[in-house]
């Protein structure tokens, strides 16, 4: 018997009789931009409202003018990032500006599918991260988010604020391994 067979056989003989699977309702909730912003700020991120997506460039120029190496397919970039970009180049990225798909008001998280990332490592290796989000895509909670999210693709991440840790005496430190700051531009 292979281990696979052994494990499956052991489960079959040890599992209880079938219990029914409950239905998960789509809970209602406050899906306002205000709530999304407040929660995101509470977890160390920032949110800036724009009137149109075209204003992204202006916002980047305003908030991140001191950063040199920018990777993006939304705003002006000077580091070209794609699937084949080497680790050594990725390591140099100061700022990545990426399209987010769904924002969740209850926890300030934003869904970023692989197709928007340019390279899977980019949102994590960049020193600073900006996600761009259509305000019509903000939902109240995770039930609504997964309901909206039909296909998760090959890889996708809900990102909520900057990378953080509290592993030393429960003191919160922003910027553990991933992005040191995270901003959401809402249009």
């Amino acid at each position: 018997m292979t281990s696979r067979e052994k494990i499956l056989a052991s489960i079959a003989s040890n599992k209880p009789t079938l219990v029914t699977l409950p239905n998960v309702p789509i809970f209602e909730g406050d899906g306002s931009i205000e709530r999304f912003k407040t929660v995101l700020e509470g977890i160390g991120g920032t949110a800036v409202e724009l009137t149109t997506k075209a204003e992204c460039q202006e916002a980047i120029d305003k908030y991140y003018h001191d950063l040199v190496n920018v990777a993006s397919d939304i705003v002006k970039a000077n580091v070209a990032v794609n699937l084949d970009t080497t680790k050594e180049i990725l390591e140099q990225v100061d700022l990545a500006v990426i399209q987010g798909e769904i924002g969740v008001a209850e926890n300030g998280t934003v869904w970023v599918p692989e197709s928007n990332m340019l390279n899977r490592a980019l949102p994590f290796i960049t020193q600073h991260l900006v996600l761009v989000l259509d305000k019509n895509n903000i939902v109240a909670n995770m039930q609504q988010a997964y309901d909206k999210l039909e296909d998760i693709g090959n890889y996708g991440v809900f990102i909520a604020g900057p990378s953080k840790t509290a592993d030393i005496e429960q003191s919160l430190v922003i910027g553990a391994h991933g992005a040191r700051s995270m901003m959401v531009l809402i249009y």
């Binding site: 998960v24 929660v39 509470g42 977890i43 969740v104 209850e106 926890n107 300030g108 998280t109 994590f124 909670n141 995770m142 039930q143 988010a145 997964y146 309901d147 998760i152 693709g153 090959n154 890889y155 996708g156 991440v157 809900f158 990102i159 909520a160 604020g161 900057p162 990378s163 953080k164 509290a166 991933g178």
Partner: peptide
């Protein structure tokens, strides 16, 4: 997949009091 909507609302709140973990990463391919 949609069962994640239950667990992602519980896990970080229960663990550290965050509304969700910073990264909730879905690996498929």
């Amino acid at each position: 997949l949609h069962h994640l909507s239950v667990y992602t609302r519980l896990l970080a709140r229960s663990a550290t009091g965050q509304p969700v973990t910073t990264y909730t990463s879905h690996f498929t391919k």
